[in-house]
């Protein structure tokens, strides 16, 4: 730290800029007052209010359905895709195509899917949201697993085949376990992404099945309430926990 000199200013400034808004939000979620701007005392009443809010409860259930479904599908497809791209294609074009859903602007993907679903006659519902989340989720899993494949040694698999194991056995006994940290980290990231996704959901969802971000959006448009603060604080906690775990899983195994 001592060598940084004046560089400490942007470093500390940036972290303050990134975290103060979040901190204010979390602090205000414990405010006793109904006025979201003036602190009058500590209270957890807004958290209990959340559990009694039907719209939020319904949003939570919908969000979990999509997030769990998208995570399962995206993890399977993304892992297979990563193996196919890294081991059998070795082409930068195919790799770029596989990762494109993670880079394409969300609004473009959203309107494209809206147009596509209406053209082929898919009714907008949680199912169409799920299909949409899988496409970008898969790209994130593929990115993490491709990175993992780059770090692993394929000689174990060759040894397994040479010793007479079938391709099937080799895949489940050697390939998958060696990629497991990448796959788990990828799955955790998709889960968080899906949980927090707003733009694509907003365009591909039906009117009767709001997810939590959609609920938050409609609440925020009407103004600031301490209830939103509490919900926001909880979602932040969930995302932070998941992302830090994903990071630890990939890093722990890097040193092995």
């Amino acid at each position: 730290m001592h060598k940084l000199g004046w560089l400490r200013v942007p470093l500390i400034g940036t972290y303050a800029f990134l975290y103060i808004p979040i901190a204010v939000l979390v602090v205000m979620s414990f405010n006793a007052s109904k006025n979201p701007f003036t602190w009058t005392g500590f209270s957890t009443q807004w958290y209990s209010a959340l559990f009694n809010n039907d719209l939020i409860r319904q949003g939570f259930v919908n969000t979990m359905i999509v997030a769990v479904g998208a995570t399962i599908l995206a993890t399977i497809l993304g892992t297979l895709l990563a193996i196919g791209v890294a081991r059998y294609f070795r082409s930068t074009v195919v790799e770029a195509y596989s990762l494109a859903p993670a880079i394409i602007p969300d609004l473009v993907l959203a309107i494209g899917l809206l147009a596509f679903f209406s053209l082929i006659g898919v009714t907008l519902s949680l199912f169409s949201v799920l299909l949409a989340h899988v496409v970008f989720g898969m790209a994130f899993v593929a990115a993490v697993v491709i990175a993992r494949i780059g770090q692993t040694d394929s000689s174990l698999e060759e040894a397994s085949r040479d010793l007479g194991a079938s391709a099937f056995t080799t895949f489940f006994r050697i390939t998958l376990p060696s990629l497991a940290p990448g796959i788990i980290a990828g799955a955790l990231l998709v889960f968080t992404l899906s949980l927090d996704e707003f733009v694509v959901t907003y365009f591909t969802n039906g009117p009767t099945t709001p997810t939590l971000p959609i609920v938050i959006y409609s609440m925020v448009r009407f103004g600031v309430t301490p209830e939103i603060n509490a919900l926001a604080a909880l979602l932040l906690l969930v995302s932070f926990t998941i992302v830090i775990s994903a990071q630890r899983i990939t890093r722990l195994t890097d040193s092995v």
Binding site: I22, L25, D196, V224
Partner: peptide
């Protein structure tokens, strides 16, 4: 870390600030 959290929430925080 903040980038992986809900984008609406991060925007909402600035409404308060």
């Amino acid at each position: 870390l903040p980038f992986w959290t809900n984008f609406l929430i991060r925007t909402y925080a600035w409404i308060i600030l």
